[in-house]
Design a protein around this nucleic acid. Structure first.
Lengths: 124, 124
DNA sequence: CCATAATTTCAATAATTGTTGAGATATTGA
DNA sequence: TCAATATCTCAACAATTATTGAAATTATGG
């Protein structure tokens, strides 16, 4: 997802708060299944009201999404939004400077290549 | 540069403000030469006092750096800090999820490959 | 339909962040 | 040394953002 500056500002603001950053991390780990609002609140030690506030903030910022499942509201990471933010940072904010993009590419390779494939990922 | 969570929080906070985000963008464009505080303030339409406040904020967050050059204070982008933030986002925050890393890798290739080399960057 | 569970909403308050203008510092050229 | 330039610092104020607890909403099983 291509982010424009106002959306990027929102996303940075959403991630600039400890409780919310921890929520995102937990939801990324949880994967597409997601977690119920209450469980997230417990995991980050926030009251139900505070958890609700921060989850709404993250959802407005496009970093997570929600669905109802019976009595619970299940939140999950929005990987499109998260990758949009990484892209914004690399492309729009850092103007594609090699000092930023080369390390990023290295992380991408390190994280996403099947184990043992690093050495000759380009050789097949 | 490897960022820990508190530094990442600071960096996100620094980028979550319009004036500061514009300052970073301008300084990235300006490259290692940088720009004088006054020129940056003019470029983003901020009073000297406000510019000083925001530049100090960005410097504390490790996204820019400063040096004195005669009467002026020259600020320039800190590419290590910026790339550290991209890395944090990909690795620590998004746990290296392919949904985030694959698009990032694509941006890295698109931005950093010498023109015309995209097609067969892996073929040599 | 009722009692309960999960979550959100709201208003009051607290805390953090940003703006402004006046004055303080540092540097230079005359 | 003096006047001028560039920038920073500080305190007062304004604005935004976060926390709290109570009440409202939505859904479910009995």
């Amino acid at each position: 997802m291509k982010l424009e500056e106002p959306q990027a500002l929102n996303a940075f603001g959403a991630l600039s708060q400890e409780t919310r950053l921890r929520m995102v991390r937990i939801l990324v780990q949880a994967g597409p299944e997601g977690m119920a609002a209450g469980a997230i609140g417990d995991a980050v030690d926030a009251s139900s009201s505070s958890a609700s506030f921060h989850l709404a903030h993250l959802e407005r910022a496009g970093l997570i999404q929600s669905r109802r499942e019976s009595r619970s509201i299940i939140y999950s990471a929005n990987f499109e939004g998260l990758s949009g933010l990484v892209e914004f940072l690399m492309r729009d904010c850092c103007s594609g400077h090699p000092e930023v993009c080369i390390p990023a590419a290295a992380v991408a390779v390190e994280c996403c290549m099947p184990a043992g494939a690093k050495e000759n990922a380009c050789a097949r």
